[in-house]
C-alpha cells in the first residue's frame, strides 16, 4: 500500500534559488528508502518539505491517501503526527535530561499518561544502549550518544514514517557505527524509513530502494543492486564510482 506519494514537487528558498524541481516518487508502507546524491542536490530538502519546515512552491504531497494542505496548520499537524525526523545535528533540547527529551512530546503534546510514556521512553533508550544515561544532559554525551537519544526520541512518538537526515554526518568516525547499528535495529520494526545518507555501504545493506538525486531532481530510482552495480544513468554511475573510489 502506498503510504507516501510526492507528485511534481518544486521547492525553493528564494525564487532565484530552486532546490527541488519536479520530484515525484511513491513510498510503500514499511519500505526503507535511501536518498543519495552530492551535497546540495536537495536530499535533505525533501525531508524538510515532508515535515513542513519548508513549504513546496508547486506539487503535491499525499500521506496515507490524503493530500497535505501546507496552508492549513491542522493538516500540517496531522501530517507531523505520522512522522518523526532525526536531524544531522541531533537537535536535542539542551535544557532537558535525556529521559525528559524522549518523554516531552508524547507527554505534553500527545497528552499520553506519564507512567506509560516514561516506561516507553526508558525502553527505547535501553534499546539504543543508553540505559545508564536517563538523567544525563545532552552536553554530557558524545555525539553518537546524542544521536541515539534523538533516535529514541523519534521512536517514542511512534511514527509511521521516520525521516533520518544525514544522521551520521556530524559524528566522529568511531561513533558512526554505533548509530548505524541503532538504525539497523529500527529497520526491523516495520516503520517506513526515509534515510538521507552518505554511508553507501550502509545504504546498500538496509535499503529496499535507493533514490539518486542531483541538482534538485531525481536522477534514478532502483534497488540497491540496480543503483550500485547497474545504474542506468551516467550521472548515477559517475557518482557511485566517485564515492567508491574514495
Amino acid at each position: 500500500m502506498t503510504q507516501l506519494e510526492i507528485n511534481g514537487l518544486f521547492a525553493e528558498y528564494s525564487p532565484s534559488l530552486p532546490i527541488l524541481e519536479d520530484v515525484s516518487l511513491k513510498i510503500e508502507t514499511g519500505e526503507i528508502i535511501s536518498i543519495i546524491g552530492p551535497s546540495g542536490s536537495g536530499k535533505s530538502t525533501i525531508l524538510r518539505v515532508l515535515v513542513g519546515l519548508l513549504h513546496p512552491s508547486q506539487g503535491h504531497v499525499i500521506v496515507n491517501g490524503t493530500e497535505v494542505n501546507y496552508k492549513s496548520p491542522s493538516a500540517l499537524k496531522s501530517m507531523r503526527d505520522t512522522m518523526a525526523m532525526v536531524f544531522q545535528q541531533f537537535n536535542l533540547f539542551q535544557n532537558m535530561s535525556v529521559l525528559r527529551n524522549v518523554m516531552i512530546a508524547p507527554l505534553k503534546i500527545k497528552k499520553e499518561p506519564e507512567a506509560e510514556v516514561e516506561a516507553r521512553a526508558k525502553e527505547y533508550l535501553e534499546i539504543m544502549g543508553l540505559g545508564e544515561k536517563f538523567d544525563a544532559y545532552p552536553d554530557q554525551l558524545s555525539g553518537g550518544q546524542q544521536q541515539r537519544v534523538a533516535l529514541a526520541r523519534a521512536l517514542a512518538l511512534r511514527p509511521k514514517i521516520l525521516l533520518l537526515d544525514e544522521v551520521t554526518s556530524a559524528l566522529d568516525p568511531e561513533m558512526v557505527n554505533e548509530v548505524l547499528d541503532a538504525i539497523r535495529v529500527l529497520s526491523t520494526k516495520g516503520i517506513t524509513l526515509i534515510i538521507v545518507s552518505h554511508e553507501m555501504a550502509f545504504v546498500r545493506e538496509v535499503s529496499d530502494r535507493v533514490i539518486m538525486m542531483d541538482d534538485g531532481k531525481v536522477v534514478e530510482i532502483g534497488t540497491p543492486d540496480e543503483i550500485f552495480t547497474a545504474a542506468k544513468t551516467q550521472r548515477c554511475r559517475d557518482f557511485i564510482s566517485n564515492i567508491i573510489q574514495h
Binding site: 515535515v51 513542513g52 507531523r80 537537535n91 533540547f93
Partner: peptide, 20 residues
Amino acid sequence: NQWECADVMNFSRARTMLYV
C-alpha cells in the same frame, strides 16, 4: 534548530517557548 525540532514534534509556538 531548537525551534525546528519542536515544530516537527508538533509543539505549538507557546509550548515551544515555555518548554524549550
